[in-house]
């Protein structure tokens, strides 16, 4: 591997790890997701420092050059994670829908109770 690419990959993975830790520390990223991104940073770091692993992986998947192995891996990772986000988004919209319905029904209940109470107190 070209030493320049290696330095760049190592720098990027270290930066990624720092950003993730910072986001979790400031509570802008839930721990639930942080481990995925920490693993990503670690995998990039390991592949950048341990070249023979990347070479062996390339042989394993049957690719001609290491670059395509890395691209393929990255693409798969992004596909899986966006699928995961889609399911999460569906779940969230469903929850928002239920909350909105419940809020609407409860508001109507509350208004009705208020009116009744005002009528009661004006009668006294």
């Amino acid at each position: 591997m070209n030493p320049r690419i290696r330095i760049m990959a190592i720098t990027l993975s270290v930066l990624l790890l720092i950003v993730i830790v910072e986001l979790v520390r400031k509570r802008r990223l839930r721990e639930e997701y942080s481990w995925v991104w920490i693993m990503t940073g670690v995998v990039v770091f390991v592949l950048a420092t341990w070249e023979s692993l990347a070479v062996r992986l390339t042989h394993l998947v049957g690719a001609k050059i290491m670059a395509s192995t890395l691209f393929f891996g990255g693409l798969m990772f992004l596909t899986v994670i966006s699928l995961h986000f889609s399911t999460k988004l569906s779940q969230l919209s469903d929850q928002v829908k239920k909350l909105a319905q419940q809020a609407a029904l409860l508001t109507e209940d509350l208004d009705r109770f208020r009116e009744r109470r005002e009528e009661d107190s004006s009668q006294r």
Partner: peptide, 25 residues
């Protein structure tokens, strides 16, 4: 009429379902 107001536009099906929930309650 009795009015149930959804806090934001959620589409026809969701509005109808809200009505069904009201009916069940």
């Amino acid at each position: 009429a009795t009015v149930v107001s959804l806090p934001f536009n959620l589409g026809y099906g969701v509005a109808v379902q809200t009505g069904f929930r009201f009916a069940v309650r």
